[in-house]
Amino acid sequence: MTGISVILNGKRISAGTDSLVEFLAMQGVDAARRFVAVAVNSVVVPRGDWPNLRLSDGDQIEIVQPMKGG
């Protein structure tokens, strides 16, 4: 389980966990952090579902936030 690798923001890395919440925490994204959103395999995972999501090997994860823009 913990041997899975995922593609985070376009880069393949070792996940270290199959828990999305744990994985996010390892990336410095606390579950209570505002203004951040997550998609797994091109599907948005609503914040309320973060605790329930289990990662699989090869999952593509996008973590995004608002930035300056026109």
């Binding site: 923001n9 376009g10 990336q27 973590i63 936030q65 608002p66 823009g69 026109g70």
Partner: peptide, 19 residues
Amino acid sequence: VTVAIRRISLAGQREDTAS
């Protein structure tokens, strides 16, 4: 005010436009 949506930078300075 408009903002863009971009991948979070996991290293380096924290982006705080929205806050």
